[in-house]
Simulated assay, not measured.
Amino acid sequence: MATAQTSTPGTLSVVGLGPGATDLMAPRAQAALEQAEIVVGYRTYLDLVRDCLNPQSEVLSSSMMQEIDRCRKALELAEAGRRVALVCGGDPGIYAMAGLVFELARSMEAQAAIDIIPGIAALNSCAAVLGAPLMHDFAAISLSDLMTPWELIERRLEAVAPADFVVVIYNPKSKKRTDQIVRAREILLAHRSPDTPVGIVSGATREHESVRLTTLGMMLDEEIGMQTTVIIGNSQTFVWREKMITPRGYSKKYGL
């Protein structure tokens, strides 16, 4: 008597594209894109990697704010036995899709193999074009309150400000959110000098890259948007030859 055949779950690769420059994408990420039967992603990120895709691959694109739909569709396709790549900008485990994929996979009781392929995160690429601002302890905080209450974000800012961390701010401002970056600066100014170096970067490694150096006291005079990353130095951070550097402590220990 014939038995019913069941489909074998496929694989879902959650691929970090890095900052956007093709030569800064990991070889494993490129291989995953080339081998995928179906590539799913936000259309802006897909446009960055069109040349890396297998011409035979099916491409499913969507617009911003459809993260849950993208992740669910990618999981469903993998559950049906397909090799799927879900693309993310930067690193998928830093403010991106990796966590959501696992949350949905748990709720769906998905059996497909999930492979997280890391990429260069925004804080890495922005730090590189600025110089070396993250050489000592740092904290990354997103100012977007779409999914995190502002009261909690503010408490986190108040916790890191007096500890003299270098602070990396993601999602600092949008058309609707204009007050959060003002409040973040106020909190930091209560604990560090207005002369503290600040780096403001957008489009790191891309054609429209913008890099500006300013100070904590003057940072709000600069253009800051949703795609901007702001890096605020600690008490030891300095600027030399238009580069932002946070010393690790070698000079004090070894007398450089």
Rank of each mutant, 00 (worst) to 15 (best):
Q56H: 07
P247V: 10
K173A: 11
I153G: 08
R43H: 15
M25F: 13
K253F: 11
D69K: 06
K173V: 14
S13E: 13
I116Q: 12
M25D: 07
M147W: 14
M135R: 03
I187C: 10
M108P: 05
R185S: 07
L53K: 02
S210Q: 15
K175F: 06
D69Y: 06
I232C: 08
R83D: 12
V211H: 01
I181T: 00
M135K: 03
A78H: 10
A140S: 15
G217T: 01
S174D: 05
S57L: 05
G90F: 03
D145P: 11
L134R: 08
M135P: 02
I232P: 05
G16F: 01
A31M: 09
A139V: 00
W240P: 00
A78L: 11
A74L: 06
A98H: 04
G20I: 00
A140V: 09
D195R: 14
S7M: 12
F102Y: 09
I117H: 14
S144A: 07
A26T: 15
A85I: 03
Q35W: 09
G81Q: 05
S142L: 02
G119L: 01
T237G: 10
P9M: 01
I116M: 10
Y42Q: 00
S174L: 04
V39K: 04
D47M: 07
I117Y: 15
D195Y: 09
A204R: 00
R43E: 15
R43C: 10
M226C: 04
P247R: 09
C88H: 08
D164A: 09
Y250T: 12
T246R: 10
M1N: 10
M219R: 00
K73N: 09
